[in-house]
């Protein structure tokens, strides 16, 4: 257990020193603050661009518009940055050969890879939950109050989706040697989860991306049974990604 703790501590320290955590925190916290502002100001801006003969009348923005902005920005800018920050997790160590010395110490390869997943899950969860808390606070002060419990549930579901993309990207980083390729695979997986499931009607109810169409219902009414299968698929993908990465890395030769 101690070797796992040592590896996780090293990973977290690396994320801090190489500013990876900082980049992610800036992006996610920016999204948290910017989303309510954009929701609030968009109708005003559209009113101002009204020309004679063309009047744009929009309803007053609500917390739901702020929520729309938050989810849209997290699922686009947030995930794009996340994929490219996480992409070098294993591939950079292979390319720079920094793992050679570590792997000749009493370190199991399974723990080496598991520590990569765990440390990224931990830091990303903290950043995402901090951003969500900031978003909620800013939104309820700008608009009207809404259920904190339902919002927390929605944030937890979206976080699992974010962790799924993280897991797939780290798996790609384990399989390939180039972090750009790993990032590309992570990004493509994000698109595939959206398109493949929606193309085939029979598997559509299992699509992880369904959480992005049901989040307003969760915030309004709490848990929906429609989310059970998408969440099960998300959990399955996360566990499979970790398992396959460990399995593959245990058999992977570290090339010179």
């Amino acid at each position: 257990m101690r070797e796992f703790t040592v590896l996780i501590r090293k990973e977290l320290k690396e994320q801090m020193r190489t500013k990876k955590v900082l980049i992610l925190a800036i992006i996610f916290l920016f999204v948290a603050i910017a989303s309510p502002i954009i929701a609030k100001l968009t109708p005003e801006l559209l009113k101002n661009i009204s020309t004679p003969g063309l009047t744009i009348n929009l309803p007053d923005p609500t917390y739901k518009d702020s929520l729309d902005q938050f989810i849209k920005n997290i699922s686009q800018i947030g995930l794009l940055v996340l994929v490219f920050v996480v992409a070098g997790t294993v591939s950079d160590e292979k390319a720079r050969k920094t793992l050679e010395i570590v792997l000749t110490k009493p370190v199991s390869r399974a723990k080496f890879i598991a520590a990569k997943f765990a440390s990224n899950f931990l830091s990303i969860s903290v950043i995402f939950l901090a951003a969500s808390a900031l978003f909620y606070t800013y939104t309820v002060t700008t608009f009207e109050a809404f259920s904190v419990i339902n919002f927390s549930l929605m944030a937890a579901i979206v976080l699992l989706y974010v962790l799924m993309i993280t897991a797939v990207t780290i798996l790609a980083s384990t399989l390939v040697r180039n972090s750009i390729v790993a990032g590309g695979i992570g990004f493509i997986s994000f698109i595939l989860f959206g398109t493949v499931f929606s193309l085939v009607g029979s598997i559509k109810p299992y699509s992880p991306n369904l959480i992005f169409s049901n989040y307003k219902d969760v915030v309004a009414s709490g848990w929906s049974q429609d989310l059970a299968w998408p969440l099960a698929v998300i959990m399955f993908v996360i566990v499979t990604a970790v398992f396959v990465a460990v399995l593959f890395f245990r058999k992977q030769e570290i090339e010179r």
Partner: peptide, 20 residues
Amino acid sequence: FGGSAANSKIGYLPELPSMY
């Protein structure tokens, strides 16, 4: 290969070592 049983007995320096 891939195991670490013998690693506590050895010290290894690769050619042009790369460290963090």
